[in-house]
Design a protein around this nucleic acid. Sequence first.
DNA 1: TGTACATCAGTGAACGCGCGTTCACTGATGTAC
DNA 2: TGTACATCAGTGAACGCGCGTTCACTGATGTAC
Lengths: 227, 227
Amino acid sequence: MLTATTLTSMAQEVDTVNMLIPTPPHPYHHGQLRDSLVDAGLQLARAQGPEAVRLRAASRVAGVSHNAAYRHFTDRDELLRTVCERSMSKLAVLIEKRIDEVSEADAVTAAWARLRAVGAAYVEFAITEPGWFRTAFAVPGTTRSRALGAAVGGSGLSAHELLGVSLDALVKVGAISAHRVPGLEWAAWSAVHGLAALLNAGPLRGLPTAERDLAVRAVLDFIGRAR
Amino acid sequence: MLTATTLTSMAQEVDTVNMLIPTPPHPYHHGQLRDSLVDAGLQLARAQGPEAVRLRAASRVAGVSHNAAYRHFTDRDELLRTVCERSMSKLAVLIEKRIDEVSEADAVTAAWARLRAVGAAYVEFAITEPGWFRTAFAVPGTTRSRALGAAVGGSGLSAHELLGVSLDALVKVGAISAHRVPGLEWAAWSAVHGLAALLNAGPLRGLPTAERDLAVRAVLDFIGRAR
DNA sequence: TGTACATCAGTGAACGCGCGTTCACTGATGTAC
DNA sequence: TGTACATCAGTGAACGCGCGTTCACTGATGTAC
């Protein structure tokens, strides 16, 4: 069964590490400026969270004058929303990846392992990418936005939908009864989200790795005990 | 048993409602400026969250020139930390109040009801006072700060300590075994904190009251099923 | 009890910062004829 | 194929904002003698 103990940095696997260095000079017509600005915004969000996603800062990173951005975004908020959606999408991509890694043979065991994988991936993302995690939840309504995973072979389901699919699978396999799904959905999501928040920004930031892994295991076990 | 369905505004009971209006002119020597600035900071935090706690804004609300604050705080961070601690303390005071309202006769039932009251009060505070809730968790390390409740007849225990006490009581009364306490502590805290965050700032903001109450009940039931 | 003086706790002006946003502009590109 | 011109996508200067912080100041208060 997948545990949450191996919280190595997923960064390199999910995306290339970029430094916050302005890009070298470019021809007058940039050509990809919108994408470049979103990438710059993602770098800023990754390093410093959603507050750091600003038009001037992103333009600086993209190596462009600070008002060129207005050719591609109506205002700062549009850039921020785009970056939030992309962050949320990265979370969904990681969750789906971890689900796909589950290889249990028995259908029931596998279904439980997949639910656990959803929770573990959620926390893994929060810990290894705190800036993106905070950004993903910085704008209300982002959860419903679809993942961009389809482009890289994913289903395009959102993080929330992946949780729903996992719970439905448990019903289909006979592990839990259907009427328990809504409650479990709430409980599981809340528990995992709260754990992520407490470990990250809250009072438990900087907990030693061993204790942190214990806490993660405790919460995931608790959810798994729902059967 | 205490439910979470009555999420009426606790504001008036916990503190007087203050508008963000500058106080009337005062004598040259204010006399209570430090307290006034902290109160002003609490008003700002309540209305707009921790980002709004700024020296200039607080001075404005307190009706004082914007640098008088430097006689009482070394910098903005000291004011912010003070306001965060006070917010955390308000959370603890509400939790303790809700615990004290439990009136079950049977020791085991009462112990469970008190644990539930802790969780319900936590969510109640998050929903009725979102600004203070965010502020309480805005500065890492604030959780360990003691509540100021002792002054108003409370125990002075922090929110976290009140949870611990409730769990210990369940052990003492024979409802759960001692070795389950750490895991339960993590799970309960995470679930309730995550629920608060999702309902508040996250994707579920603006959920209709009925659905929201269902979600709260689902999560509290889930914790209560730990027996 | 009265005066000199130190200290405390305010004031008002100023500096420098990064920000979002707007303006008039100009270089590069695409299209009609 | 060549030229005129519209359009697109950049640039640089500027405005106004609120902020934290520092400076020299001044009014009020408390204390020593």
